[in-house]
Amino acid sequence: MMRLPCFRFHAPRTVREAAELLASTPGAMLVAGGTDLLPNMKRRQQVPGTLVGLRRVAELRTITRGATLSGSPANDDELTIGAGVTLTELVRDGRIRQGYGALWQAAAQIATPHLRNMGTLGGNLCLDTRCNYYDQNYEWRKAIDFCMKKDGGTCWVATSSPTCLAVSSTDTAPALLALGARVTIVSADASRQLAVSDLYRNDGIHYLTKQPAEVLTAVHLPPLDGWRSTYWKLRRRGSFDFPVLSVAAAAKIRADGTVEAARIVLGAVASRPIEVPAAAAALAGRRITDELIATAATLAARPAKPMDNTDFTLLWRKRVTRDFVTYALRELRGDDVRELRHRVSRMLL
């Protein structure tokens, strides 16, 4: 089997300790559930000399309403999820299932039950970007003389591209963007909050704005305030697979059916989640009719620029973006989409 390279391991008990270890050890990386990082290390995509484990940091492992995590001020009625909460814990939490549909549906479709038992929300947000030329073992990458993202010079997806086009493949990030969530980031000497949207950059290599020595400690979900949300994920199979297109949508809909405000976000079509304000704006102040859905879906699909580095052909992924936006908007409108969901996701959500 493939073996991990040798590394030093630290298991701090507090965020502060973890941040200090990161600050004082060049090249050190955080590991939470390890479901992304450890396979990458086996393939030598990352070879950190030191790992700082987060599993023993108790303060990262709670879900609280209105409470405050170390250094992260929180509003009274927002929901705060520690970065170390596992995806299984997240999926089992009734508050999330009932109130934050998009996040729940996104988390429930990540990987497999075993991986969700280990994988964390923080790890999911910081998940490495993905590409079929990069997510390969060392010998394979050697056979293509490596690529720009690791050990090589060329981007094989677009040989003239000056940047890496690896795909943002986190399921929770688009959902959290649609929900208007914020994150807290802590370093050895500071702490700050930012919108989830500001955590990302459209660059396959430097896809996070967070510095390597910063710890993502919590995710803050704003008060519900009448918002409804949903998440649709395209993947070949009903389990295991990363998204190769996803649509997160949230809307605040009045009793008479008019949309007060909306957010539509695409996942896995670029190196970061892509928000589509034009489509959301088209919905505002109107009732969600089939015609409006069609208009919004066309607008929403426009910025999708899939590349040939994931499963399915890029033209098809681009084309069905409209269909997936349509599914999401129909669900927000209140249509019964259970049968459709079962056909597309092979599970009931």
Binding site: N132, D135, Q136, R236, R237, G238, S239, F240, D311, R346
Partner: peptide
């Protein structure tokens, strides 16, 4: 193209 059980697609029990 993808010598791995993740990207060489074979059905899961859900499929």
């Amino acid at each position: 193209k993808f010598p791995s059980m993740l990207e060489y697609k074979s059905p899961t029990t859900l499929d």
